[in-house]
Design a protein around this nucleic acid. Structure first.
Lengths: 262, 262
DNA sequence: CGGTATTTTGAGTATCGTCAAGGCCAGTGG
DNA sequence: CCACTGGCCTTGACGATACTCAAAATACCG
């Protein structure tokens, strides 16, 4: 394949940023400028991209795959603070040092921008600034979602909340949602261990919670990382999600279902 | 007292924004302009300032007292998503509608800015924009703190984490910290019920956790809303906080202790 | 001093964390 | 082609913890 050699990076070529939903609104010139200073990086699961306390050398944008933001606690637990997916940006633009690690959860592809040219571009392009602001607001919303999920006293409820969030906030992801004979298939994109770290519990409890949800008929487990939603209302009831949103949820899900079936 | 009548507000006069730590860095003219469009509001505990789904009529800045951001869930639980204290701003500047309620936790005083003049001021004052950005980053950090605290499997650990956060992130507050005969007194600024809503549990468990911490000698309970930290290390150990930070914690706390004693 | 709200305590049950063992799947090497 | 190995997921048993409901004690306010 024709590869344009980058200036020293192991990966070379050009990022394809056009299809990322978060950047779509940028003017074409800005997008081109971004692609000009960005280099694609292919990362394999398990790699640590940046560690707590340091300031990452580059600004990154996830093209596909999933990264996790996580902290290692004193008692040995690892707590996942959030997931970075397609279109999410990271790398402390204004902030000081990171206060969490960034690791690769599944094999991923990112676009890396050197800090200086990126920040210079930022000065001249208020649109880019706006996109970053929205990215941050999005992260704040998601952090609050995780808070609500974590506050659920039962693991079964936390898992139900996670599945619902997967269906809404992460629904744009390629492989997560798929309709099949009238039900919605959901691919669980991370391991049980990571799920446990995310929901503040242990893999064993996650497993029990999955089967608990299956027992009440809310889902069925097709394979460890693929489930089928059989009863949205039961799922919502378990999660204890908010009143108004749960109705919106139902509507959206029905929409997604019918859209994906077509 | 000399009061300058406002244009229709029930409260009148001028906000004193000078002493707020988050606004200190603003140029004097910007601060004056802000004070010009702001009106002080005195609020009593329990009042709902804004509800989920609506867009608040004004931008607010807390002068003193505590507001809470909270959501009412379908199963009746109320989950507190965070506290707004002296210097914090709220009111969805760029965002769409709120997705939580804002209620007054303790009698409070805020400075309210009408949306239009505030946003116009924002256009002309990049410094103000920057302050708002920092305010948002701060909120994100705090949301992540809450996540880590909520993820702690034991209520005793969550409570320990809360007390530590109180000593660090909220240490600038007037009444929270006070040194007395060599130990640090901490005023718990919200009720047991609110604390339960914040930590995702029930008031009974909060009570038991307080007494559990007292049993291991980490704290002593002077009155329901006033505790004394007797063993910081035990408290940190219970909270399971992060490795590096816990050392910083210890240092900071010792500093606070010696500073407050003087 | 009485009345109310808040906090605390108690007892019983459900849930979760822990430790240990078993099962499933994929990749490896004979 | 098949046994083996290692990683991940599941299951089981048991003790610790937290939720629930109910009642008592305490603090708060007039």
């Amino acid at each position: 394949m024709a590869e344009i050699k980058g200036d020293g990076g192991s990966a070379a070529g050009k990022c394809d940023l056009l299809h990322l939903r978060s950047l779509k609104e940028l003017p074409k010139e800005t997008l081109n400028a971004l692609e000009g200073i960005g280099r694609p990086l292919r990362l394999s699961a398990g790699k640590t991209l940046a560690s707590e306390g340091e300031r990452p050398q580059f600004i990154g944008c996830v093209v596909n795959g999933i990264l996790r933001m996580q902290k290692t606690l004193q008692d040995g637990r690892q707590q996942i603070l959030g997931l970075l997916v397609e279109g999410d940006m990271f790398g402390q633009i204004l902030n000081g040092p990171l206060n969490y690690d960034i690791e690769v959860a599944t094999d991923a592809e990112i676009c890396a921008f050197k800090r200086e040219p990126f920040e210079e571009l930022l000065m001249h392009e208020p649109e880019l600034d706006r996109v970053l602001m929205l990215n941050m607001l999005n992260e704040l919303d998601r952090a609050r979602d995780w808070m609500i999920i974590l506050a659920n006293p039962r693991v079964k409820g936390r898992l139900a909340g996670f599945i619902l969030v997967l269906c809404t906030r992460f629904s744009e992801l390629d492989d997560v949602l798929q309709a099949r004979n009238g039900f919605l298939d959901v691919k669980i994109p991370i391991s049980r261990a990571d799920l446990a770290h995310l929901l503040g519990t242990r893999p064993e409890s996650i497993s029990r919670a999955f089967h608990g949800l299956a027992d009440i008929g809310a889902i069925s487990i097709l394979s460890p990382d693929l489930i089928e939603i059989r009863n949205v209302d039961a799922l919502i009831a378990e999660s204890g999600e908010e009143l108004e949103l749960s109705n919106a949820f139902r509507r959206d899900l029905k929409q997604i279902l019918s859209k994906r079936i077509e």
